[in-house]
Simulated assay, not measured.
Amino acid sequence: MNAVFLDNKEVDFVAIKQNKKIYFQVSDDISNQKTFDREVTSLLEIQDAYPKILLASTHHDEYQYEGVKIIDIEEWLKL
C-alpha cells in the first residue's frame, strides 16, 4: 500500500491486488463539514471506477456520498 498525491491532495492508502484497487482515506472525526470536505475531495477527484472508502469514527451505519463509502472505522476493523 502506498499514498497517492493528486494536485496537492493526498489519498492515504491504495490497496492493490492483482488488477484491483481500493482507495482509502482515514480520518478521526468528520463531523465538521470542512474536515469532511477535505477528506472526501481527494477521493472524488479520482476518475476511475475502483472503490473509494473514507474510514472515520462516525458511530453511524455505512452510507455513501457521491459514490464514496463512508464507514465507521470500528465496524470496518471487525470485518
Results as ranks from 00 to 15, higher is better:
residue 21 K to T: 11
residue 79 L to K: 12
residue 53 I to L: 02
residue 9 K to D: 06
residue 76 W to V: 10
residue 43 L to H: 03
residue 70 I to A: 05
residue 57 S to L: 12
residue 3 A to F: 09
residue 53 I to W: 03
residue 61 D to F: 07
residue 23 Y to C: 00
residue 79 L to F: 04
residue 59 H to F: 10
residue 7 D to A: 10
residue 22 I to R: 06
residue 18 Q to P: 12
residue 22 I to Q: 15
residue 46 I to R: 01
residue 4 V to C: 08
residue 27 S to N: 03
residue 23 Y to W: 04
residue 46 I to G: 00
residue 51 P to Y: 13
residue 15 A to C: 13
residue 6 L to G: 06
residue 41 T to K: 08
residue 14 V to C: 05
residue 27 S to G: 11
residue 51 P to I: 06
residue 34 K to S: 09
residue 18 Q to M: 09
residue 75 E to R: 07
residue 29 D to M: 05
residue 38 R to Q: 11
residue 63 Y to A: 12
residue 31 S to K: 14
residue 60 H to G: 10
residue 29 D to K: 06
residue 45 E to H: 10
residue 12 D to L: 01
residue 29 D to I: 08
residue 10 E to F: 05
residue 62 E to H: 14
residue 18 Q to N: 15
residue 4 V to G: 03
residue 55 L to N: 04
residue 18 Q to T: 14
residue 74 E to H: 08
residue 19 N to P: 08
residue 18 Q to R: 12
residue 69 K to C: 14
residue 60 H to M: 09
residue 5 F to P: 12
residue 54 L to I: 08
residue 55 L to P: 07
residue 65 Y to N: 13
residue 28 D to M: 09
residue 67 G to Y: 03
residue 53 I to K: 02
residue 58 T to F: 04
residue 73 I to K: 00
residue 48 D to A: 06
residue 21 K to C: 15
residue 26 V to Q: 01
residue 65 Y to D: 05
residue 36 F to L: 06
residue 36 F to I: 04
residue 40 V to N: 09
residue 73 I to F: 01
residue 42 S to C: 10
residue 32 N to P: 03
residue 62 E to N: 13
residue 67 G to Q: 11
residue 52 K to E: 04
residue 79 L to P: 09
residue 49 A to Y: 15
